[in-house]
Design a protein around this nucleic acid. Structure first.
Lengths: 157, 157
DNA sequence: AGATAATAGATGTATATACAGATATTGCAG
DNA sequence: CTGCAATATCTGTATATACATCTATTATCT
């Protein structure tokens, strides 16, 4: 352990980190810890939560381009490229080259993709209910509202 | 797009997902979107946020076992095994076999590890300030408090 | 029209992550 | 003291993630 006399120990930055902690590290930890439970519920349909998120976005708005879908989900477009590949292999989504601009890919759910997604929804609900139970209703709902704001503010830019 | 007459569209689970959304997906999106900014600030010391978190935990409490450190950070112990390897290669941490139980590894910061961590702290603070500016003080602080509670509740089990 | 800039995705590479199962060590029952 | 259960960690394998860079296509400027 560092000696108390280290000059850095007196810095405002250091004290802030040790006393308040880091927003993103808490976000990340909360994500990891809760995602595991969700993934366990989803195992029955062999979908991870990122995959479920992708199918859900396409269910709501089909025929998006890679860039648009990536922005909606909040991942880098290159991440989406790899993630879609797995769903494509399983026949859950399809990519077509757009007729008007051959650079663009149009991503769509297949009937199997839609069916699997709808089968996953009640499993998701169980996971969501389990988390709410562990965290308590008050905390869950407050957190939910604030996260909605956070994602909105970060997604735009 | 599915027809409005699909029976599943009437299910409570489906409506909940489409209207309220999913807590974990929002958590995950918020993490991804904000982590990128932090990582950019940290590039100067070539540390990712997970790496920074590991060094910070060891700075606070040196000589933890793998399991204890993993629990503190909130990652699976097998994840920590791989993540520590990178820090070890760079000479930032050391693992010794515990004298009293040779199954256990005692993880410690090297002087270089401590130096680099202390150099990273002001960079972290810049990142933290930048996020607070984007989200607004009110939202940031409310979120922060709730995440603290969330992590506490999830970490224990 | 031809050269060049801009855009949409894909690839190379690296880290992060966790589950299932393997290995090494310790503790305990008999 | 021997064998088996429990514990701590590591490995095999698979997905998730993003930055830098590359390729293909479209748009723009002269």
């Amino acid at each position: 352990m560092a000696r108390k006399t280290d000059s850095v120990l007196e810095s405002a930055a250091f004290r802030q980190l040790m006393e308040e902690g880091c927003t993103v590290l808490r976000l990340h930890a909360a994500t990891r810890l809760s995602m595991q439970a969700y993934n366990a519920f989803m195992a029955e349909v062999d979908l991870t939560m990122p995959q479920f998120a992708t199918l859900a976005s396409l269910y709501q708005e089909d025929g998006l381009s890679m860039a648009a879908l990536a922005q909606l989900i909040g991942v880098d477009a290159t991440t989406l490229t790899r993630n879609l590949r797995l769903l494509e292999r399983r026949g859950l989504v399809l990519q077509d080259t757009a007729a008007d601009d051959r650079r663009r890919r149009v991503v769509r759910l297949t009937p199997e993709g839609r069916r699997l997604f709808l089968r996953a929804v009640p499993l998701w609900q169980k996971a969501q209910a389990a988390l709410k139970k562990r965290l308590g209703v008050t905390l869950t709902e407050a957190l939910h509202k604030q996260l909605t704001q956070v994602v909105e503010k970060l997604r735009g830019s």
